[in-house]
Design a protein around this nucleic acid. Structure first.
Length: 496
RNA sequence: GCUCCGAUAGUGUAGCACGGCCAAUCAUGUCAGACUCUCACUCUGACGACUGGGGUUCAAAUCCCCAUCGGAGCACCA
């Protein structure tokens, strides 16, 4: 076979190895995609999926990527002023710099225009029903009295809505769908409501009282922006059916859509943006980049590479099933990137002093990285620090190796004492003695902030030169050196 | 309750549009071993799945039906 038709073999192989990760797209024309967050908090790991998947497709198919801030709720999901920049910053970090940035609250007038046209076409009406009253009617597949009002009259009501003559809850603009639609979620949905709370953006402030809901704002924007493909969470699947009514009235073409299921991360559980906001305000977390928090900022601070996060997200694919995953895979991905470049250092947490008899002061030499020749030098006297967790399993008389230093025999547990017994590696090779790491008593104070708490101890000198770099604390894990000061070094735990 | 959607190893995923190349891919995980002056890395090996039941067919992970389980929407949130 190989000799008669090698190209067939190649073709078969190609079929067997389709695009790993994201499914290929069947495009009819140019690709325009958007990522549309509400900036009511910083981008989370969940946002990263949207950012990465959208950008991956637009990169692959030479499309256009738009980031659109859906910030049309000044009250319930109130936008956070800093978050706009955080999104742009994290997008850029993730290699997803958008071609265009749109802020919905700057474009309210455009939504008003469409609303007016819809009213004129008889596709929308101002409804004065109380919420429960309308729900009862809707559930019974019955129209409310306002539904049949003439377009002219509705136009008048609409103008009053805009000029602030109605209070909150008093009037809404509804899109006329099919009041008997088999799915109650579709029946005459709300497009605009009154909100008296000023918008946090000073450019907008109290300029408007009639605010569009997401389904309306998104419908208009996706048309205006020329979006050709929408990928979003499956919680928004019904939006498509609702929005299609607007598109039908206006004679627009609806974009293609794809949806993904909910993602839950084991390590973080069910943390909502509002829940996090509260926990931060209460001081449970130190901020939006606390290592225990599922934001992109936190991962960055911990030394996770954008490349690893991208691959992680792409490998998830686009399933509609809800998924529940562990960050282990992300860590494994990241480890592949940082292990070859991270320098190695000793860090002793919960240090215990160990006095060594018969040891001459010397300078220990250890490789900066196991694959490289460069050495780091650590001056040692007759005392070293070792981890409490190593001491816990130590027995008197045990012989062991202090890594890159020399061999000792334990002569006492408390206080901890040992005697120098040589430098020969045979102790490890023939006697299978344990090797533990250590630090000089006059080393650097180090604090490591990790998702499961804080570790404090002493690290060898040299760590202070690695500011902002990811290093490996041997037998501990990878950390990013976050700050270096007189009081010591602060590191953020990356992963094992 | 009404309306949609989904289900492949512990986890995530490929395969499903067009049934046979599938005793099912890849990654991660776990365990064992090799290497190593780290419990890291690397290498080797092992473990582990088509939700269940019917049907169609020579042939079903793939098509059809039912059941079960899971999720989403039914907001003047996004």
């Amino acid at each position: 076979m190989n000799s008669i038709a090698p190209e067939l073999i190649a073709e078969l192989k190609e079929k067997k190895e389709p695009d790993k990760g994201l499914p290929p797209l069947e495009l009819k024309g140019a690709l325009v995609m958007r990522f549309a967050p509400n900036p009511n908090g910083p981008p989370t790991i969940g946002s990263a999926r949207g950012i990465v998947v959208n950008s991956e497709y637009t990169k692959k198919y030479h499309g256009k990527l738009i980031i659109r801030f859906d910030d049309t709720d000044p009250a319930t999901k109130r936008p956070m002023l800093e978050a706009y920049d955080w999104y742009l910053d994290d997008c850029e970090w993730l290699g997803a710099k958008p071609d265009e940035v749109i802020i919905a609250s700057d474009r309210i007038a455009k939504y008003y225009e469409v609303a007016e046209q819809l009213i004129k076409k008889g596709g929308a009406y101002v409804c004065f029903c109380e919420q429960e009253e309308f729900k009862a009617l809707k559930d019974a597949k019955k129209a409310c009295p306002h539904r049949e009002e003439a377009a002219e009259k509705n136009l008048g009501f609409w103008k009053k809505m805009l000029s602030g003559e109605y209070e909150e809850q008093e009037a809404v603009l509804r899109i006329k769908t099919d009041i008997t639609h088999k799915d109650p979620a579709i029946r005459d949905w709300v497009a605009f409501r009154i909100i008296r709370t000023p918008h946090p953006r000073p450019q907008v402030g109290d300029k408007y009282v009639a605010w569009p809901l997401l389904d309306f704002e998104g419908a208009v924007e996706d048309h205006l922006l020329g979006t050709t493909l929408i990928i979003r969470g499956k919680d928004l699947t019904d939006s498509e059916t609702r929005q299609r009514y607007v598109y039908k009235y206006m004679g627009w073409t609806y974009p293609e859509t794809m949806h993904w299921g909910r993602v839950q991360i084991h390590e973080f559980g069910k943390l909502s943006t509002s829940g996090l906001k509260k926990a931060i305000a209460e001081g449970t977390y130190t901020g939006w980049d606390d290592p225990r928090v599922p934001t992109i900022r936190a991962l960055r601070r911990r030394g996770i590479r954008a490349e690893a996060l991208r691959k992680f997200m792409i490998d998830l694919g686009l399933g509609e099933t809800d998924i529940s995953l562990s960050l282990d895979t992300l860590y494994a991905e990241n480890r592949k990137l940082i292990d070859p470049i991270a320098n190695r250092y000793f860090f002793v947490w919960n240090p215990v002093e160990l006095e060594i008899e018969g040891a001459e002061p010397k300078v220990a030499k250890a490789p900066l990285h196991p694959a490289k020749k460069e050495l780091r030098e650590i001056p040692v006297g007759t005392k070293v620090l070792v981890c409490q967790s190593d001491v816990d399993i130590l027995k008197e008389g045990e012989r062991l190796r202090l890594k890159d230093l020399y061999n000792i025999e334990i002569t006492g547990i408390s206080p901890l004492r040992a005697k120098f017994i040589g430098t020969d590696m045979d102790l490890v090779k023939k006697e299978k003695a344990r090797i533990i790491h250590w630090a000089p008593p006059d080393g650097l104070k180090v604090r490591v902030l990790s998702p499961d708490g804080e570790y404090t101890g002493i690290g060898e000198r040299g760590i202070e030169k690695e500011l902002d770099k990811v290093v490996q604390f041997e037998r501990f894990g990878f950390v990013r050196i976050d700050s270096v000061s007189d009081v010591g070094v602060v590191a953020y735990f990356t992963h094992k």
